[in-house]
């Protein structure tokens, strides 16, 4: 059994997971590109974190990275 088999055998579990994580990442990326200032860090840092550390990067961005008004 290889990786692809594992995923195809468990599609009902993987599809919602993938949708959620991609959705959260997209929401974070849209928010990052629409705003210039962040509470900490800069745009490159947050884009990289969001894309590479899934899904913690996007969560961290919304909790501590987002500028509050």
């Amino acid at each position: 059994m290889n990786n692809a088999d594992i995923i195809t055998n468990n599609l009902p579990l993987f599809i919602p997971l993938i949708i959620l994580e991609v959705g959260l990442d997209l929401a974070a990326l849209i928010h990052i590109f629409r705003h210039k200032n962040y509470r900490m860090g800069n745009r490159i840092l947050w884009v990289l974190l969001t894309l590479l550390v899934n899904p913690i990067g996007a969560i961290l961005y919304f909790i501590i990275g987002r500028e509050q008004y």
Partner: peptide, 21 residues
Amino acid sequence: RNYHLLIITVVFVIFGIEGPL
């Protein structure tokens, strides 16, 4: 408005799926 509900929903739905997975 400050996305807390969104984060909580997404994260805990993920956790819910992750257990059986």
